[in-house]
Design a protein around this nucleic acid. Structure first.
Lengths: 230, 230
DNA sequence: TTTTATTGCAATACAGTGTATCTACATGAG
DNA sequence: CTCATGTAGATACACTGTATTGCAATAAAA
């Protein structure tokens, strides 16, 4: 047996770590959605057997949590400005942008408490920006209200975007013309206000709609912060 | 072969319809969560083979849509009061109550456009209540902002509730004492504002927190409806 | 009434999933 | 060189959603 026939020394498998696993999972999710993430595919992408992963994560849910926290690293603004309103506003917009980059995040947003280090860091700068502006209960209420808004708004935006993509039609065109079921329902005359809205509504840019609602909510928060609770 | 040995005339299977299928699926989800809903189990509950369902449903996603719309029937208030604010407020609270009855709804809320007949009916009474108070764009923004808020808030509430249930600890106790990871992070001193919040925060009832945030958002909407857009 | 066609249910089948268990081998110590 | 140990990998299991096939009972036709 000469040198060439001798089998390669069995290549010790490349060492794995959570970072690489999470990165592979995110890559899969970015291009195929969350349901394209299977432990087998993630492992394959790292030239490993599926069971290898269980040395670094204990369940698939945990992998999802890690993916979310990784995106929070993108969300955390590098240098935060002073004004509390600006902090909340950029937090909302950065979360939205991150979700547009990683649409699968919409499926996870708000689904579980976010306790990873990056998520905690985001919470920290947010709370820090509001610290002292009112009693702690009010501050918490403010943060939670704003984040409830943008979480819900982002999810809806992605949901609509997917629906449009699936039908190949813009929302209004589809509601008005093609949507077979909806059109029939509207034609029944049982939904006059809705019909009018669909008919007269103008298509608004998703970002300005998001920003507008956000401004309203921030206005409300500002009012409450100004005069601490009754 | 006597009469008793003679096999029963092959019992024609009980006729199926979407209603019964959806009801069975909801029953399963109510007691085991969304991931307890499998087509096989739903079918078994109706003494049918899995494939029977495909005569009434074309995919599992569609079943989920039907389940959601069924819950919207519970959400639709029987007789709506006049005031727009009251309509939006009760819509929010009824959605929350329905989600507390059917926790799985939290996983689906906002995940896809809601176009079932009951959901459309809910949208109809909502739009009707706001009709004429401002131009259509503003009205839409109002509805979407409020529903983004309560959607996000409900999801977070359920997420926390599940976490508490899983650890058997209240949120604050758990953050403060047990949560192994979080405690360590807080101890690093890198999150002073967060640490203070966890330390000084008082446990607030989920419903009042929901209602408070909702009131803030409704205040904001009221202000915008009063003076149509710039 | 007998034969054919049609319908709709059920069984089987397939490709995939998350995860538990078991086996074998490469590496460390003695 | 031998042995213990830990870890990578193979195998296995119980499921999943859904496509396809076959069958049996009814409706239609002769």
């Amino acid at each position: 047996m000469n040198v060439w026939d001798r089998p390669e020394p069995p290549t010790r498998p490349a060492p794995l770590d959570r970072e690489r696993i999470v990165a592979a999972a995110i890559a899969l999710a970015d291009q195929g959605g969350l349901e394209a993430v299977s432990l087998r595919k993630v492992a394959a992408r790292l030239d490993a057997g599926p069971m290898r992963l269980y040395g670094y994560i204990s369940t698939k849910e945990e992998l999802f949590d890690l993916m979310v926290d990784e995106v929070y690293a993108e969300i955390l603004p590098e240098e935060q400005p002073g004004d509390w309103r600006e902090v909340l506003c950029t937090l909302a917009h950065r979360t939205r942008q991150a979700t547009l980059r990683h649409e699968w995040l919409a499926d996870l947003l708000g689904g579980r408490p976010t306790l990873g280090p990056n998520a905690l860091a985001v919470t920290e700068v947010t709370l820090a920006a509001l610290d002292g502006l009112a009693d702690l209960d009010t501050v918490m209420r403010a943060v939670e209200t704003v984040s409830a808004y943008f979480t819900g708004a982002i999810r809806r935006e992605i949901a609509n975007l997917r629906a449009e993509r699936a039908t190949g039609l813009s929302k209004r065109d589809w509601q008005r013309a093609s949507g077979p079921h909806v059109t029939r329902m509207l034609a029944t005359g049982r939904f006059p206000a809705l019909a009018k809205a669909v008919h007269d509504g103008t298509e608004v840019d998703a970002e300005v709609s998001f920003a507008t609602g956000l401004d309203w909510v921030l206005d409300a928060v500002a009012a409450k912060l100004a005069r601490p609770p009754t």
